[in-house]
């Protein structure tokens, strides 16, 4: 029964191959708001379930090693797949899956569930924001597929700036908390596992570079569109500032 609950949690805190269901579920939701809420809520729900599943200290060493290996594989596989995604929402959920896989490593190393819930938010919150922003982009341009029209900063300066900052927050850029979570998790790992996990860095750097290349550079040839409202961009800025503060002050606890 405990094992079943743990496996069920892996549907919600993505772990390959069950992560496919997580992504399919997010994709099937019809509204942007519902997707954003799901991005926030599903991992929290999964972690709550995990509290009633197998305890991490009950894992045998081979089981723990297998779990860490699977979590690292999930993170790398999804980060690798995000390289070729040009739709902002697909890109977001693939990278979210990569980030949340790191939570499994922290769990296997014995981090308490309430702490894991906060750690999960460091990826869920920027991913939820990006989901909302991809919806805003789709409402203005007819889709959130990037690369057809470059230099979106010209017609949509606030929206583009919001996307850029949120992408940086999602992909473990210092001093956003996801950076410290990744660093702190790597600190807990045996040294032989660290190097594969750190392959996330070049993959995320590449992914981020490709996204920015499509988003920021080139010539905008579309029609004039209305930018994100000042209030909405202020909200995004406030949330990101909150994450920054959490990164600066909460990093001591994570590390």
């Amino acid at each position: 029964m405990l094992a079943a609950i743990t496996v069920f949690a892996a549907f919600l805190v993505p772990l390959f191959p069950l992560s496919w269901v997580f992504n399919r579920l997010l994709d099937s939701l019809p509204m942007t708001t519902a997707r954003a809420l799901a991005v926030l809520a599903l991992p929290q729900l999964g972690l709550l379930l995990l509290q009633y599943g197998v305890a991490p200290w009950a894992l045998t060493d081979p089981q723990r090693r297998a779990l860490v290996a699977l979590a690292i594989f999930t993170a790398l596989f999804y980060a690798f797949r995000a390289l070729s995604a040009r739709d902002l929402f697909i890109w977001t959920r693939l990278n979210l899956s990569a980030g949340l896989a790191v939570i499994w490593i922290a769990w296997a190393m014995g981090t308490a569930i309430p702490v894991l819930q906060i750690l999960a938010l460091t990826w869920s919150v920027p991913a939820a924001l990006l989901t909302l922003l991809s919806g805003a982009l789709a409402a203005r341009l007819g889709g959130s597929y990037l690369g057809l029209m470059g230099n979106l900063v010209e017609p949509l300066p606030r929206l583009t700036a919001s996307i850029v900052l949120t992408v940086l927050a999602l992909l473990a850029t210092p001093v956003f908390p996801s950076f410290f979570v990744l660093f702190g998790t790597a600190m807990q790992l045996p040294l032989s596992w660290i190097l594969p996990l750190l392959l996330l860095l070049p993959l995320w750097g590449w992914s981020c570079g490709r996204l920015f290349q499509d988003l920021l550079f080139g010539a905008y040839r579309g029609e004039a569109v209305e930018d994100l409202s000042l209030l909405s961009s202020l909200m995004v800025f406030l949330v990101l500032s909150g994450l920054l503060v959490l990164g600066l002050y909460g990093s001591g606890g994570v590390l």
């Binding site: 470059g150 230099n151 900063v153 010209e154 490709r210 920015f212 290349q213 920021l216 550079f217 080139g218």
Partner: peptide
Amino acid sequence: ATRPAAGRYAF
């Protein structure tokens, strides 16, 4: 940002 080459090399 108007020069795609600048973005490519920055990348």
